[in-house]
Design a protein around this nucleic acid. Structure first.
Lengths: 180, 180
DNA sequence: CCACAATACGGAGACAGTCTCCACTTAGCA
DNA sequence: TGCTAAGTGGAGACTGTCTCCGTATTGTGG
């Protein structure tokens, strides 16, 4: 990639980051292009779909997930405490942007999604937790089921503008259902 | 309402029913108006928002819910069986149209939604089940939490185009978490 | 039966967002 | 320094939403 192209790419990502945070994922792409000081064509060449732009914006986030899972695992406690803490973290992580939970949870199901890197990170994190749980986990549950169950809750809370506290009781239900 | 107005209203609803089923909830409203043989203005007068049109289309559905809850309650069995059967029904009921689960589950949180009639029907049905469960239910769980937990799962399955069988295992997790 | 409000109709067109196309510009190599 | 592949930008085509208002229809009171 030519140096000027790389520069423009960065400018677009930065403008998109701001726009997504303040206006949500519906922010008009032409506006983002304008804010970045480039033409619409340039934006669409770098990011053919809205999704691929979202993906680029969320790059840094992958590292946060790996940090979080390490921290949760290190803290110890019962399996129930571990799982609940992880799910709380999980919800927070996928809720960084408005509309994030649904977007990420859906992308989980779609191998062709431009967000699959992010999904793999999350699934890998879930797998680490599952390993630590060992025999305490209901048999047959995998990282994808974690993602769906908790992602479903996070989506409802996010899209319904529910207070963050309403997550806890729902997660407890799921946690108790997941442990033997 | 004038007779011709009522006639047009019906034509619009019928056209919308077809369009929503075949094209999903994104079907252009102008197209629906055209299919109904009326102008766009007429459609928008009767149904100021897309949501209110969806609401009208789903009217008959309310009766199905009441049937279903009666049947599930009558069949007997353990609390676990009852709840699982109801949740299966619940998912089916809110999945009649593509995009239905998320739409209904979100509307649950919004008293101003034009779909609130439908939501109340569902919550009332949940309440009937909760009553039947009596002391077997985890304390503090209400009809809205039912809606969120099961609605979250249904949304993921619906939007991710997952096979219908994938609902079962997730529901079992939630059921086991909900019973004491 | 008919005249005349009140009610309803319809579709042109304003508006907003998405995305493409291509004449022009620029980076970077030989 | 000149050449060319790579990159740019923004006009405008296209699609869907929604409003406005001149026209048409309904049904009622005289």
């Amino acid at each position: 990639m030519r140096a000027d192209a790389a520069r423009n790419r960065d400018k677009i990502i930065e403008a998109a980051r701001v726009a997504f945070r303040t206006r949500g994922y519906d922010a008009p792409l032409d506006d983002i292009a304008k804010a970045a000081g480039v033409g619409a064509g340039t934006l669409y060449r770098h990011f053919p779909t809205r999704e691929s732009l979202v993906d680029a914006v969320m790059q840094a986030w992958v590292e946060r997930v790996n940090d979080a899972v390490g921290k949760v695992r290190a803290e110890g406690g019962t399996s129930r405490e571990l799982l609940l803490r992880w799910f709380q973290q999980y919800v927070e992580l996928i809720s960084v942007h408005k509309g994030g939970p649904a977007k990420i949870t859906l992308a989980m199901e779609d191998d062709a999604s431009p967000m699959r890197t992010k999904c793999h990170t999350l699934r890998a994190a879930n797998t680490q937790i599952i390993e630590q749980l060992g025999d305490d986990l209901r048999p047959g549950v995998d990282s994808l089921q974690f993602a769906r169950l908790v992602g479903g809750i996070a989506s409802v809370v996010d899209q319904g503008n529910l207070p963050a506290e309403s997550v806890g009781p729902m997660l407890e239900v799921v946690v108790d259902g997941l442990l033997v």
